[in-house]
């Protein structure tokens, strides 16, 4: 029964993959991403990255840098591999059994996939905010203090209190929740929950924050708050954000990377991507011909 289900899914995925490769979208991708994928003194750099799910290749030969304290947006149509790519950066894909990542990914020049790199330590340096707000079913305080406690960042209760307050302040949530820190985080509204998740991510002082469509489950007002927050956070953190909304990419990011079916097509200053895209696919997506 179960094994049948597995093979069914496998064949389905295969069909999907072949359909994609022979479909009308199978245009000539640039060998190298167009524009300026590389920066001076990158925080993170990715070279020749291929990602596979079983036999299916999800990411093809991606080369890109993420600069210090910059916000880089990753856009592209559904299934283009932008989330997969993001999850490869902090090795979240390790938990997916069939997933394999090839190529060189480095953080401050250290190889992320090296044998001596501990994924747990890596994730403490590269935090992540997910698509759906996912606070733990614990109190607001426990949600934020979980990471610091885990890594032993605070030796005394007062220190922990300080970390929690600072994180919540930076996430713009302190004023709203300071009187009910002992109440469950799941009782907050969607937007507040997402800001709580951001507070939880920054509580362990990561160097890079990855955001996987952080506003897709939120209403416009909550979205505006999160976008504001991203702008503020970019002063201290390097942020990579995957988004479905081109307007959001335009609003929050300094650079934008356009992915198409696993290929990185174009990377440029955000303004340039949205006003004068260099590649035909980018232009087609920006102008709304698909996506």
């Amino acid at each position: 029964m179960v094994s049948k289900l597995v093979t069914d899914t496998a064949t389905m995925l295969e069909k999907k993959a072949t359909a994609k490769q022979t479909g009308p979208d199978a245009m000539d991708y640039p060998e190298q991403a167009i524009g300026e994928p590389f920066v001076k003194n990158p925080k993170m750099s990715m070279r020749n990255v291929d990602v596979f799910y079983g036999d299916k290749q999800a990411i093809y030969n991606v080369n890109v840098d993420i600069g210090q304290n910059e916000v880089i947006a990753m856009i592209g149509p559904s299934g283009c591999g932008k989330s997969t790519f993001l999850r490869s950066i902090n090795r979240m894909n390790d938990t997916v059994e069939s997933c394999r990542v090839h190529g060189e990914l480095s953080l401050d020049g250290e190889d992320i996939y090296a044998a001596k790199m501990d994924p747990v330590a890596l994730r403490a340096r590269v935090g992540m905010v997910f698509q759906k707000p996912n606070p733990f079913p614990k109190s607001i305080y426990d949600n934020v203090s979980y990471g610091p406690r885990l890594h032993g960042l605070a030796s005394r209760r007062a220190e922990l209190d300080e970390i929690v307050e600072n994180s919540l302040r930076r996430a713009g949530l302190w004023e709203e929740v300071k009187d009910r820190l002992d109440q469950p985080g799941t009782g907050l509204s969607g937007g507040q929950q997402q800001r709580l998740c951001i507070a939880r991510a920054i509580a362990i002082s990561p160097e890079v924050i990855l955001m996987d469509e952080p506003c897709s489950a939120l209403d416009p007002i909550a979205t505006a708050k999160i976008e504001e927050l991203i702008a503020e956070l970019s002063e201290n953190y390097t942020i990579a954000i995957v988004t479905h909304s081109m307007q959001q990419a335009a609003r929050v990011s300094r650079r934008t990377a356009y992915f198409h079916l696993g290929h990185l097509v174009e990377v440029n200053d955000t303004e340039k991507v949205f006003t004068a895209p260099e590649h035909a696919l980018t232009e087609a997506y920006i102008t709304g011909r698909f996506g």
Binding site: M92, R123, K132, I204
Partner: peptide
Amino acid sequence: SIREAAIGVGASPMQVVLHH
């Protein structure tokens, strides 16, 4: 999503199981 959240803040697999 709870597992991912825990892994995301750097919990080891055993901590994910025991804490969440």
